[in-house]
């Protein structure tokens, strides 16, 4: 994967949400997205970060990375490399959360393995 357009590393703490939302708004505004689309993606990113933070055993840092492709913007949310996390959420609830993220972004994938969330990928289609 190429280097991210923007990388934000913040403590895995709910108090960081305003920073995360503003950084997200800034990154997305430069992709010529409409304000409603920005609002939706701010919610999606906040939700993805909250999902990371609210794990039974969360990472200590949240990495938020924006990758620009030709017709899409990928946003990755994950913990610090090597973080030992435990999700603790039942599969049914995780499915609904994934559906929520899908409803806010154009596509969402939760990389879940070994009982922990390794990465959340949100994709916004810029060709529409």
């Amino acid at each position: 994967m190429c280097d991210p357009l923007i990388q934000l590393i913040v403590p895995a703490d709910q108090s960081m949400m305003l920073v995360i939302r503003l950084a997200t708004a800034g990154a997305l505004a430069r992709a010529q997205l409409t304000v409603d689309a920005i609002d939706d993606l701010k919610m999606a990113v906040e939700e993805a970060c909250t999902l990371m933070i609210s794990q039974e055993c969360p990472p200590t840092k949240i990495y938020l990375e924006f990758f620009r492709r030709e017709r899409a913007m990928d946003i990755h949310v994950h913990g610090e490399p090597g973080a030992v996390c435990v999700c603790g959420m039942d599969a049914g609830e995780l499915d609904v959360v994934c559906a929520i993220l899908n409803a806010l972004a154009d596509a969402a994938e939760i990389d879940f393995a070994d009982g922990r969330i390794r990465n959340i990928l949100l994709t916004k289609d810029l060709s529409r």
Partner: peptide, 17 residues
């Protein structure tokens, strides 16, 4: 359609930030 942030800033006469 909904405007983007650049268009809004230009019309509102404000900085995008």
């Amino acid at each position: 359609r909904q405007p983007n942030a650049d268009e809004l800033a230009e019309r509102a006469g404000a900085e995008i930030d």
